[in-house]
């Protein structure tokens, strides 16, 4: 008995030690991420800032290119999210509810191609298409390419979500006297909303963090998003100016964190489907 208890104690200790080690490995960069921006002499090593200073931020805020880039990121991400959210909802609803032959195949083929479209493999054709459309160096080019790349996955997620919602919701709305449009907006849309929220957050994070597509499709400094502008904090020799880079990174990540918090507070990442029967 005693031996068994000892055995469990040893096992738990080893497990806790291993977990602590792993946790530390992942936590250290985050700790650096929150300390470095406030340290006037930050380096790649971890150090507690003394004194705490906002001078890094003051310098970053004077960099108009970088500040404009944050706004550009916001325009591109918001544009992409609106387009993906609206189009994916309508398409997924139609794919889920109407008897279109081969609709499963359509979704899977689109899904397969989407990983190509937003991937680097298709960069040349994408560039040529955008160029032919005369959209090079516009926000619209970035928004459209992201929408094209993200839509299939968004549709796929949402279609599964809508499939799980009983049709009797809309049916009961229609026998209650609602037109199909009323049934969609009054009943289906609110029930699907948690799914849309998930897709919107996912799409926002994707566009916000993406570097390659805006880097290739955009020319002028005044349109570049933050993911590209972050390179303005590298010296001409290509070494990072750690202090400014850290401060800008923190600012850059805030909208995503804010979005998560907002969504979690307003909707809570949860699905509410049907009532139990």
């Amino acid at each position: 008995m005693q031996k068994k208890a000892q055995n469990i104690f040893v096992r738990r200790t080893v497990f806790a030690a291993a977990a602590t080690f792993l946790g530390t490995v992942f936590a250290l960069p985050l700790v650096w991420f929150f300390f470095a921006p406030f340290n006037a002499r930050a380096e790649l090593g971890l150090a507690i800032p003394s004194p705490f200073t906002l001078s890094n931020f003051a310098t970053v805020f004077q960099n108009t290119f970088a500040m404009q880039a944050l706004l550009n990121s916001l325009i591109q991400a918001a544009g992409g999210v609106v387009l993906v959210g609206a189009a994916a909802t309508l398409a997924a609803y139609a794919l889920s509810r109407s008897p279109i032959p081969g609709k499963g195949a359509v979704t899977y083929i689109l899904l397969l191609f989407s990983s190509v479209v937003s991937g680097s493999a298709a960069m040349v054709p994408i560039f040529l298409i955008i160029s032919a459309a005369g959209l090079i160096d516009t926000h619209l080019a970035v928004i459209l390419v992201f929408a094209g790349g993200l839509l299939p996955t968004a549709m796929f997620i949402l279609r599964d979500f809508i499939d799980a919602i009983p049709r009797s919701y809309e049916e009961s709305a229609m026998v209650a006297g609602a037109s199909p449009l009323q049934a969609f907006f009054d009943v289906a849309l609110p029930v699907i909303r948690p799914g849309i929220v998930v897709v919107v957050v996912w799409a926002f994070v994707n566009i916000w963090g993406s570097f390659l597509i805006p880097f290739i499709l955009l020319r002028s400094d005044k349109l570049m998003p933050a993911s590209v502008a972050i390179y303005s904090f590298y010296s001409e020799a290509g070494t990072p100016i750690v202090t400014l880079l850290a401060a800008y990174s923190l600012i850059y990540s805030l909208p995503v964190i804010a979005l998560y918090l907002l969504v979690n507070w307003k909707f809570g990442f949860r699905f509410f489907g049907g009532i139990k029967s």
């Binding site: 049916e171 609110p190 489907g273 049907g274 009532i275 029967s277």
Partner: peptide, 8 residues
């Protein structure tokens, strides 16, 4: 309806 289909 059998499942009542109340709007949640």
């Amino acid at each position: 309806f059998q499942d009542y289909a109340l709007y949640p």
